[in-house]
Amino acid sequence: MKHLVIACMVLFATATIIFAQDPAALTGRKAPDFKLEDIDGNIVGLKSSLGKGPVLISFWATWCKPCMEEMVEIQKIYDEFNPKGLTLFAVSTDNEKSAAKVKPLVKSKKYTFTVLLDPNSDAARKYYAQAIPFTALIDKNGTIVYTHMGYKKGDEITLRKKLNALLP
């Protein structure tokens, strides 16, 4: 048991240390495609949004407190960067039990960005969103250039910097 624990930790500590040095060192992963329903029942695919500009995907849920905090900033980011070419998908990972609360919440908070439903976490699983909120930024070539898990006040500063680097 102990040897296995140590072996795994050493393996991942090593990998972490190597890969953690330069955030840009590991940006080679192509964004996995997904096809999800929006809150009005339309099917939206990621593939059709690629190539036009950066795409920001934010995984969230109605019951998640930091997600609600982040959504306020996401709306501001959308207002600022959408006219410059940003596509934003807020993907709700609310399961079938809380899915009923997504549309009322979106309407009451007056979010204007596209909200998609991922009730069985199929898209979240593809993006390795191991916890929410989880943000993935994709450049116009379809490459994931930034991921972030959790939300703390100030995380939007980093995200803005990344977006400014991608947009003219």
Binding site: V5, C8, M9, F12, T16, I17, I18, F19, A20, Q21, D22, A25, L26, G28, R29, K30, P32, Y128, Q130
Partner: peptide, 22 residues
């Protein structure tokens, strides 16, 4: 994690994730 280390790149199309709890 603060020191300079060589860069590494994943092959295109490959994704890796790991979750550990001890």
């Amino acid at each position: 994690a603060q020191d300079e280390m060589p860069k590494a790149n994943l092959p295109e199309g490959l994704g890796i994730s790991n979750q550990l709890k001890y």
